[in-house]
Simulated scan of single mutants.
Amino acid sequence: MTQVTETGVPIVTAGAEVGGLRARKKARLREELITIALRLFEQQGFEETSVQQIADTAQVTRRTFHRYFPSKKYVVFGHEEGVMAEVFAALERRPVGESALTALRGALRDYLLDPDAASERQHQADTARRARQLLHANPTLRGENFALAMTREQALAQRFAARAGLPADDLGPQLLAACCFAGLGVAQDHWMRGTDHSLAALHQALDHTLAIMQDGIDIPAEPNSDR
């Protein structure tokens, strides 16, 4: 079965069908399309790469490509849709008594450091790094991603509100979700620009950022400063 995310991008998640074979084939093809497209974008540029080239390299039809992605730009964002769906699912599984940030830190830990999915998670991390590098190099894509990020941010805010028993339009969950997305973006960039691109390093960067937020992000003035 094909799942549609909050942003309207179709994704296929593992376990989407009883029996799983057809769903796993769809998931593998979706990941293959993302991997191939990102490689072509790196090699010859985003604008210079056509949907037909991506489809030909993957040995599928253009029509098959469009079953997974409305256009080539959604390939760049597509990996994040699948990841966020799984992180949100992990968040739902956290104990109900946990605060929003405690639950999110636990969800990211459960998701990224799952020993039964280490190879898959590393592949997803590598894909995320390459996609983020492409976003940094392409202002148009950054603008498109911003619009999608707003939708994901609202989805997180709604989950925070539900966890706390607050109205969906309460300012607190909305502000916290916005801070989380901004902070996690900073953490991803720090990880991307570093030399250690392991899952452990990614989790450390993300968790450290959320820990700073949880402790309070105001920065005091330098002690004994006369300025």
Rank of each mutant, 00 (worst) to 15 (best):
S99W: 05
S119Y: 07
E86H: 08
L101R: 03
R93P: 00
G143K: 09
S99K: 12
T140E: 13
Q124Y: 05
L104D: 02
S99H: 12
R121W: 06
R142T: 10
L134N: 02
A147W: 13
A103V: 01
R142K: 11
L101N: 04
V96W: 07
D114I: 02
N145P: 00
E144P: 00
H123F: 12
A147I: 11
N138D: 14
Q122F: 07
L91N: 03
L135N: 07
E120M: 12
S119V: 14
L135R: 10
A131I: 03
A147R: 15
G106P: 04
L112V: 10
R121L: 07
A118E: 13
P139G: 12
R109Y: 01
S99T: 15
L141Q: 08
R152W: 06
A85H: 11
M84P: 00
T127F: 04
A147Q: 12
Q122N: 11
Q133L: 14
R93C: 05
A90S: 13
A90F: 01
F88H: 14
R121Q: 14
L135A: 12
G143P: 05
Q133A: 13
R121S: 04
V96K: 12
A147S: 11
R105K: 14
T102M: 14
E86G: 03
R121P: 01
D116H: 12
D114P: 04
Q124I: 08
R152G: 03
A85F: 05
E120R: 15
G106D: 06
A128K: 06
G143T: 08
H136T: 09
P139R: 13
V87P: 01
Q133G: 15
G143N: 10
A147T: 10
R152F: 05
A107K: 00
Q133Y: 10
T102A: 15
F146C: 09
